[in-house]
Write a protein that binds this DNA or RNA. Sequence first.
DNA 1: TTAATATATTAAGTTTTACTTCATATATGA
DNA 2: TCATATATGAAGTAAAACTTAATATATTAA
Lengths: 183, 183
Amino acid sequence: MNRIGERIKKKRELHKLNLNELAGKVGISPSALSQIEKSKSFPSIVTLKSIAENLHTTMGELLGENEVIANNPVVLRNEMKLTDQNRSGTNIYLLSHHDINKQMDTYLVRFAKTSGMENLLSDSHGQIFCHVLSGEIRFQIEEKTYLLKQGDSIYFNAKSSKEAVNNSDGISEMLWIQSPANF
Amino acid sequence: MNRIGERIKKKRELHKLNLNELAGKVGISPSALSQIEKSKSFPSIVTLKSIAENLHTTMGELLGENEVIANNPVVLRNEMKLTDQNRSGTNIYLLSHHDINKQMDTYLVRFAKTSGMENLLSDSHGQIFCHVLSGEIRFQIEEKTYLLKQGDSIYFNAKSSKEAVNNSDGISEMLWIQSPANF
DNA sequence: TTAATATATTAAGTTTTACTTCATATATGA
DNA sequence: TCATATATGAAGTAAAACTTAATATATTAA
C-alpha cells in the first residue's frame, strides 16, 4: 500500500519512460508523478487508472494485491479432498487447500458416465480454464457447444452461462481452474 | 470504474451491513459512504483499502478489474502452440491464446528424459499451480524438494526460486497455470 | 392507516491533499 | 566542464473527499 510509488517507478523504468513522458500521457505534472513515486502522496483513483493503462498493467498490480504470499507449497498426492458431489455422480475434488491468499481455485472434476454439472460452481466471477484429463466432455458456453477430448482445453468467463456433461461411455475427468479465487 | 459505487453497495448488502455500520468500520461518515456508493465521489485509496478489507474483498475487485471479458471461448485440441524450448529437450506449449484480458497464463510443459526447466519462465509474479499429467517430476521450491507423480499438484509463489526436472525414464508432462497473467 | 424508528440521500460548508508552478538538485553526455 | 536531460523539493492553489446537519425514504409496530 505504501509502496505503490516503488512499483510505479519500477514499471515506468521497465517501459523506458521518464517522468515527463509518463506524466504527459497520464495527464499530470512530472512533479506530481515524482511525489507519487516518492510516496509523498497517493494518486487519486482516476490517475491511478490512467497510470495503470499507460504502463500496461492493472491498478490491483500497482496496489500490490498480487504480492500476497501463498502458504507453503502444498503438494497433494492422489488423495484429493471431495468438496461437492451431485446425485447424478459428478464429484468435485479440491487440488489445493483453500487459502485467503490464493489467486486461483483449483479443482478436479470427475464425471460418472452420463453425469454432468449444470448449476455447480455457478454464480462465480473471474475466468475459468478447463483441461480434459480423460474421456470426453461436452461444454455449453452461452449458446455454443464444444466437444473436448483428452488433452483439450477451454478458457471462458465465469459469468457465462455454462454447462459441462460427460460425453463418453466411461468416466471423464477434467481440471477446473478459476481466477481470481471465489473461495 | 464509474461503477465502484454499485459494487461496494452490493457487497455491503451481501454482508448485511447498513451505511452506518460499514462507515463506522471504515472510518468515514455514513454520508460520505453514500456519496461513494451513489458515484458522487470516488473514495481515496486509503478509504478504498479499508472498504475492501471490511468487505473481505480486494481493491481490484471493487475497481472492477475482474470483470474484463475474455474473448470467445478458445478450444485448443491437441494442436498446441510451442512457445519455448531449451536445448536439453523441455518444450513449453501454450494452452490458450495470449490475450491482454486473460487472468491466467496456461501452459503444457513436456520434458524429454533427463531434461528440466531452471531459468525458464523465471522473473515472474503471482502464483503458480502445476499438475502432473504423466511421468514424474521433481520440484525444488526455495530449499525444499518435492517429488510429484501423475495426478499430483503443487501450488507456490511465482517469486520463489523454483526448478522442475524430469525424474522418470521417459517423457513427463505437466500443466503450468499462472495467475495473474505475465503475458 | 398512522406514528415511530431506522436507514438512506442530499445540500452546503470545511478541510484535507492531490496536483501545479517554479526553482533547485542530480545525473548524463558531448 | 559546460550543456542538456532528468529528477526532486518548496510553496501555493485548486479540486474533491469528507463532515455536518437537515431531509427524504423505507421499515416496523400499534
